[in-house]
């Protein structure tokens, strides 16, 4: 599907199709909330918005009206967000590979590989019928998520917020496929246990 360029070149002859002086009013709030919701750091999110506009200015030729101006700017800030994830990931991978917290507990018996008895999953009992509609349950999950190491959160954000494919997440965060699965597995087992502990 081809859409028309949003800026009519006939009205602005000689100019490229995007007017940088309008960018801030048109897109800064959107870009800020895009970045903030992904990195959860207000100051850093503001910096990324500014850097995005300045980077876009450097290469006005890159915008050809094939997609909307906002899509173009979002692609730039997305790259910058992933760069933040990657820097955080690197801090971990140099140490132990999977971004494990120091006090990470093994939920499985090291020899037999079955669940340790104290970690046996038990069914969640929800007061309402649907846990998806249970606000209290969601709040607990939210708190449990916040305890995860940042690399694991980055993986979940790319997976659930942006619906990125596994191979793209691995590429973005420079993870091997097996590292990726270890992270998903550890993170889910941890989350599940945190939910069970806090949901009574």
């Amino acid at each position: 599907m081809h859409s028309e360029p949003i800026v009519d070149t006939a009205v602005n002859p000689g100019k490229h199709q995007s007017d940088p002086e309008k960018w801030v009013d048109l897109h800064s709030d959107f870009l800020f909330s895009y970045a903030y919701s992904r990195i959860n750091d207000e100051e850093l999110a503001r910096d990324l918005v500014q850097e995005t506009f300045l980077a876009a200015l450097e290469k006005p030729g890159a915008f050809r009206g094939e997609s909307s101006e906002r899509t173009w700017l979002t692609a730039i800030i997305k790259y910058k967000v992933i760069d933040v994830y990657r820097k955080k990931a690197r801090a971990f991978t140099t140490k132990e590979g999977y971004g494990m917290p120091a006090d990470d507990e093994d939920f499985f018996d090291p020899e037999l590989n079955n669940w340790k008895k104290e970690h046996w999953p038990e069914p969640f009992v929800c007061k309402g019928t649907d846990p998806l509609e249970d606000k209290e349950f969601m709040d607990i999950l939210q708190k449990c998520l916040q305890k995860l190491p940042s690399l694991w959160m980055s993986v979940f954000r790319l997976k659930h917020m942006d619906d990125e494919k596994t191979e793209d997440i691995c590429k973005a965060l420079r993870l091997s496929a097996s590292n990726y699965w270890v992270i998903i597995h550890r993170a889910k087992v941890n989350l599940r246990s945190c939910l069970q502990k806090n949901w009574i």
């Binding site: 800064s28 709030d29 800020f32 909330s33 903030y36 919701s37 207000e42 503001r46 918005v49 999953p121 069914p123 969640f124 846990p131 998806l132 349950f137 969601m138 999950l141 939210q142 998520l145 979940f156 954000r157 659930h160 917020m161 889910k188 989350l191 599940r192 939910l195």
Partner: peptide
């Protein structure tokens, strides 16, 4: 079962509109 449930919950949490600080 719980793993499937958590995936659903996470999609919901991550995609939910939140009140955020503004510029």
């Amino acid at each position: 079962q719980q793993s499937i449930l958590m995936n659903g919950l996470m999609s919901k949490i991550f995609k939910a509109a939140r009140v955020e600080p503004r510029l």
